[in-house]
Nucleic acid binder design. Structure first.
Lengths: 326, 326
DNA sequence: TTGTAGGCGTTATCAA
DNA sequence: TTGATAACGCCTACAA
């Protein structure tokens, strides 16, 4: 069912049908009706590919996510979807698993005009080829803003938030605050660690230990905690750069016979709604996940609509939320 | 950069460039080289929209998922992605949140030729309009196979698996086995409940209680368990239709002072890798999530390639995995 | 082995 | 207010 079959059926030209389809003004109500009923009659569905080709706009956004199972990511994605839907855009979600081959396969859709722009949540810094693939297509880095690249970004101030965590723990009397961090491919890892280290120093706390993990999941948190407990002088507080990691750490600590928060304070980072991930309550930095998604879309659309709009690095607020364990 | 600019640059015709692009045989190696270097030189990126329009195949698959945060879903999606990638297909993931408006928005891409087929993981039965939108486009129902519709399906035998759960619990000496089920919009809810009820009856166990939840998450499991514990005669075993629910139930039970599995046996369903969701080990039905995804894609592609291939309802094996709590 | 030209289904520019 | 018609960028008979 193409547009000219409908045109024939309605006894008008394709141009008129198109005008009705796109609600262009200047169509006599009467013919409009004719067309509309012809459409209904023929069960016509416009071919979006053709439309997109012609208008060179697909109204689709590519979203590259490192891991769909990470609740932080899925919450951001929800924000993205909602805002996109609001503007009549569709989402092409790519769960890259940080695999460059898959990412580049999806990015080909960018240069191939299948999508109008891209939002990445991955650590772009360690994927050298990809930025070339993106070129100067509309691009927003979400929750990971590296000003070295020509994508806009929306993040929180990781450094300040990490500092707040350390200060909060120190204020509770903690003296040996350990950091559980992800490997350093992410920019936020650097930033949070910087905040951690400089605040420790500023407070005159000399005990300092960073334990790295290479997966961001519950198990990794467990394992990291176990290693920390074997230190000659174990920590009396944990700051994990993700709630899932913190959950795992909590688990291990309890298994080892520690009482939380008496023996050990544990703080996370993300603000993922809690019970879905791990049962015990946990004090954490709450990132505005939904808003991260929403703003990403807004920035991206602005750039899509007007390429000459400036690249902007937006910083959203975070909140330290006390959920009763640190 | 269109194909004819490249052609001009290489001093050949567009047809030749196209042939090189698509690795068609019968191009002199020499001209092939010319074209290749012209492509490299001009930084040419084929316009996929145009190609898709011309070949009327987009190599994109739509995947409708009720909730991206559900680990069962994300694991199936991983299988889907992997198999799709293997065949050079891309995934358009729609997190419907069971919202019909969003689903229909995405399904418009089907009739609009933007995707070649669709895999649904949602309860299609309660979304009347949608099946009309799908029409007779290639369609596979994943983990939810309703033969009333013209989509192929790949599932497990929910009834038999539920029966196995009940028999397993009964064999351990449990006499008051409660079922925590989701609301009945899903076909699998019906099937699992049927298996539960008929096995109870077959075994001559008269105690029978179904507790319904309307969300499939940890909290819902907690709440359901709490309600169950208030029964005049509380259960001595729980069968939850999802691992997340079981995790929540376990949590509530422990909070209420019960020891698992001495006081209460708990069984889940799904086989979601465990630690990511909830800490205690749990006996469960393991669904072949990855395989569910893989087979869905295979069935779908078969149908895309040849529309006259029969609709098939495939049933995969499940496994009862004992993880030490029931 | 290569080139010419028509068409995929739209939208948009002109004329009428 | 409407209708021809030329693109959009590609693939593919068919012809050379």
């Amino acid at each position: 069912m193409s547009i000219d079959k409908v045109a024939r059926l309605a006894g008008v030209s394709t141009a008129t049908v198109s005008r009705v389809l796109n609600q262009h003004p200047g169509v006599k109500p009467e013919t409009r009706e004719k067309v509309l009923s012809a459409i209904a009659l023929s069960n016509y569905q416009p071919n979006l590919l053709a439309r997109q080709l012609r208008t060179s706009r697909s109204r689709m956004l590519l979203v590259l996510v490192p891991g769909i199972t990470n609740p932080f990511c899925s919450l951001v994605v929800r924000g993205i979807e909602e805002e996109a839907e609001l503007h009549g855009y569709h989402i092409l979600l790519c769960n890259s698993e940080s695999r460059p081959t898959r990412e580049s396969a999806y990015l080909a859709l960018l240069s191939g005009k299948v999508v109008d722009g891209v939002i990445t949540m991955d650590a772009i810094s360690c994927l050298p080829g990809l930025t070339a693939l993106i070129g100067d297509s509309p691009w927003v880095q979400c929750a990971e803003g590296d000003p070295a690249y020509n994508g806009s970004s929306v993040t929180i101030d990781n450094r300040a938030a990490a500092a707040a965590v350390v200060r909060h723990l120190a204020a509770k009397g903690r003296r040996r605050i350990a950091l559980i961090n992800t490997d350093m491919r992410y920019l936020y890892s650097h930033q949070r660690e910087a905040g951690y280290r400089e605040t420790l120093e500023g407070l005159g706390l000399s005990w300092c230990h960073v334990e790295y993990v290479d997966e961001v999941d519950y198990n990794a948190g467990c394992a990291a905690m176990t290693r920390l407990l074997q230190l000659p002088q174990p920590p009396d507080a944990i700051f994990a750069v993700s709630d899932v990691l913190a959950g795992g750490a909590l688990h291990s600590a309890r298994r080892a016979g520690l009482t939380v928060p008496q023996d050990l304070a544990v703080m996370g980072f993300d603000g993922v709604p809690f019970s879905a991930v791990t049962s015990p309550p946990l004090t954490t930095i709450e990132q505005p996940m939904h808003q991260l998604g929403v703003r990403s879309v807004q920035l991206l659309l602005a750039r899509i609509k007007n390429h000459r709009v400036a690249v902007v690095h937006e910083v959203l607020d975070w909140k330290l939320v006390e959920r009763g364990s640190a």
